[in-house]
Design a protein around this nucleic acid. Structure first.
Length: 255
DNA sequence: CAGTTTATCCGCCAGT
DNA sequence: TTACTGGCGGATAAAC
């Protein structure tokens, strides 16, 4: 069940709506909200005791009106298992893509992202204020460097290497990276490597050891640790779940 | 999994 | 004066 951004003028929400939401949640449905939709979920009590986010301009009010909700205004979206909330409308796209990735794997998500013409790289922890479009004509964009880094993931890239490619100091790279993407270079790099590893696990039969190497993790241990932290699974379990996305989707829809 | 080593991040600040 | 860069060092996170 997806609650989109709604006008706050519509409060109080119809009791029937809240009932339906609670009922859906009780029988195991996954509930998501975009932007101010989080207020509806909060009113239904579905966010009590959970971490959640909303548009940055409303975060303070949400936290104040619903003290039992752990509001994190800095996140793009927060997946708390059964309940998923996202920041402003653009972050809603990230949330939807995240759900696709969770259900169908990184390869399918990448295809969807390409089809709807959006970049597929943002994770939920990223800051809210970042735009999709690059400044454009000015030459301050880090896009070429990020592209280069993605092409060379298998190399043991350091921040100094990346800064070197961008022809600036590490200190400046850090600052500019944060301004343009909302994350730090290393976090971004690890996420790119994880996505690459996911795709390799889905579409190839390479042993985990080689997947780790090709994705640029220094060791299979590093891959497993990052996998566990970000995806809450192991590489092998992930492969088992997503090895053949077509088959899996067919099976799911036939159930 | 825990302990150690190494790399990254970020506030502060001086320089252009 | 404003806008930006980049070195320094300690807190913190990643790699080993």
């Amino acid at each position: 069940v997806l609650i989109p951004g709604v006008s706050r003028a519509a409060e109080p929400w119809p009791a029937e709506l809240l009932d339906v939401l609670q009922e859906a949640h009780a029988r195991g449905a996954r509930i998501a909200s975009i932007c101010t939709g989080a207020f509806v979920l909060a009113a239904a009590g579905l966010l009590d005791g959970h971490r959640a986010t909303t548009h940055w301009a409303y975060a303070a009010e949400l936290a104040k009106r619903y003290p039992r909700v752990d509001v994190d205004a800095s996140a793009l979206y927060i997946d708390d298992g059964r309940v998923v909330t996202s920041a402003g409308v653009a972050a809603g796209l990230d949330l939807c893509l995240h759900l696709v990735r969770r259900d169908h794997g990184a390869t399918v998500a990448a295809n969807v992202a390409r089809r709807v013409v959006m970049p597929a790289q943002r994770d939920g922890g990223q800051a809210q204020f970042i735009t999709y479009e690059e400044p454009g004509d000015d030459n301050s964009s880090l896009e070429p460097t990020m592209h280069w880094a993605r092409e060379n993931l298998q190399l043991p890239l350091t921040i100094a290497d990346i800064a070197g490619h961008a022809a600036m100091s590490s200190r400046t790279l850090n600052r500019r990276f944060k301004a343009q993407t909302g994350t730090t270079p290393l976090r971004w790099l690890i996420r790119q490597r994880l996505i690459r590893a996911q795709q390799l696990l889905e579409t190839t039969k390479l042993p985990v050891e080689e997947v780790a190497e090709v994705a640029g993790f220094g060791s299979p241990v590093a891959l497993r640790q990052h996998f566990a932290r970000a995806l809450e699974t192991s590489p092998l379990a992930y492969r088992r779940a997503f090895q053949d996305p077509e088959t899996r989707i067919a099976l799911d829809s036939s159930l």
